[in-house]
Every structure is written in C-alpha cells, then in structure tokens.
Write a protein that binds this DNA or RNA. Structure first.
Lengths: 130, 130
DNA sequence: CTAGGATAATACGCAACCGAAACGTTTTCG
DNA sequence: CGAAAACGTTTCGGTTGCGTATTATCCTAG
C-alpha cells in the first residue's frame, strides 16, 4: 500500500479525531499499544514479556492493566503452572473497542484515495473567529 | 484504499509502537490532533476555533499549546487586528515531527500488503517467559 | 529446606491532564 | 462613554500517568 506524506498525516488526523470525539476512555499511547499487542499477537502474554517487547517499564504495564482492566478491555489471570506469571487475556469489550478502531481506520483510509487532501468537509466548521 | 480489519489494526499498532519506542515527547491524543489540525488545515487557527472543531475544551487547548510550545512544536502569536485572538502557527520542529510521523505511517503501510498479518518480525522477541 | 533469582505489584514523588468556574483584556454596541 | 460580549488564560480540586526503588510471592538450585 502506497501513501503520500499528506495522505498519511490526514489519515492519522482523521482517525485520531474520531477517537477524541467519540470520547471513549482516552487511553495513553502506551496503553493502546499494549491493548493492540495483546489482541494481535498470539498468547500467552505476560507483564515481563510485554515490557520487554514494547520497551515499556513493568510498572507502566501493571498500571495499564489496572486501568484497562477496570474498563474491561482485558483481564488478568494467574498462570497456574508458574504462579509468578500473570497472563493477560482478551475480553469481549476489548474486541469491540478494537473493532471500532479498525472500522475508523478502514473508513478514513477509504476516503483518502480519490480525494483532494486539502478541502474535505472540514471547512464547514470554520476555524476562523466570527 | 482498501484495508481489512486485521491490517488496519496492525498498521495502527506498528505506528504507535514506533512512537512509543522513539521516545519523543509523548503527546496525548488531544495534543496530536491539535498539532495535526494546525499543520494540515489552512490558517488562521485560534483557540476557540480549534476547541469548537475538535470538541475539546478551551483550557485543554491552552494547556496543549503551553506544552507543545515548550517543545517548540508550534507557537502562539497575538492577532494584531483583534488582540483578543491568539493565532497558532507552525514551526520547523513541528514540521519535522510530523514528517517523521508520516514516514512511519508510510513505511508501516507499505509493509502491510503482501504480508502475513500474524508472523512478522515480532516473534524474535518472544513474549513468553523464559 | 533454605538461599537466590525471578516475577508482578506497590510506594513514593513528581508532573501533566481534565472540566468547571472565575478572571483580565479587548472589542462591540447601545 | 459604559455595559455587555468575546477571547484566551488562570485557578481550583481531583485524577491519572510516569520512573525509580522497594516489597511480596513464588520457583528453583544447591
């Protein structure tokens, strides 16, 4: 898939705008990366494993699990074969969340191609003061 | 441009991972949206205009301008014709920041197409405990 | 069965963010 | 003029995030 710089930035902008407006719980960059990793890559996922792979500190992972667990975006489960480990698992709510994200990316990407990158529907809410 | 759900999520994941790892100053979702809007849409940009368009509160815009101004990602300028207004302007540093972001999106998007969505180079840093 | 290593969680101090409300300045309009 | 509106900023109280350092629990060797 080929993109020009302005198209790439517009895509990014449009999707992030969807995220901001739909005011879902606003997750930090780290949290979103963790969530996506858990859902995209094959289990098992542990705190240490995620910390190493994503280059995020372990406490940051733990806190992210606290927050996203509270939001039911994923859940913890002790590893019974080695009780030091915590396995991070997916939830239905998390799947829905990411499905929505994927939809946003797909729809915004679809608009990109045959479009003038400058004037989209944005000019209807003018940025200039009245 | 057409994307499948898994491809969309993988693209999002990969780019966000670039952002986390390159540890640039980590901007919040709102901040990135503000930054992108200022650079993608034609000026002038005001606090009130951005707040309305992005559905973000005015104090949040002000704080974002403080932070990103400190990082030299954009700058303020009083509107001389109406001194109540503050015009938000671009900077070289901000352009570089977004150019890097665009590069990341472009490169990650290029990898998407003819690729197996499951096993990429991620498996070399195994997520499983040793 | 005890010492050492590994894992996740917690404590602490700090910084940043948020929304609502209040404020100071500038412009507009009666 | 003087009052009202518009604009951006600041203040307030509260929440959340981060990293470093420490703790509690569990496994594994010797």
């Amino acid at each position: 898939m080929e993109l020009k710089p302005l198209e790439a930035l517009k895509l990014w902008h449009d999707v992030e705008l969807d995220l901001v407006r739909d005011n879902r719980p606003d997750l930090s960059l780290r949290q979103i990366v963790i969530l996506l990793t858990v859902y995209l890559e094959p289990p098992p996922h542990t705190v240490r494993g995620l910390a190493k792979k994503l280059e995020i500190s372990k406490p940051a992972i733990t806190r992210a699990l606290d927050t996203m667990g509270r939001l039911d975006l994923l859940k913890r489960k002790r590893d019974e074969s080695d009780k030091r480990n915590v396995l991070i698992q997916r939830t239905v709510t998390g799947s829905v969340y990411l499905t929505d994200l994927a939809d946003s990316v797909i729809n915004r990407a679809r608009e990109i191609g045959p479009n003038d990158p400058v004037r989209s529907k944005t000019s209807e809410t003018a940025d200039t003061p009245s």
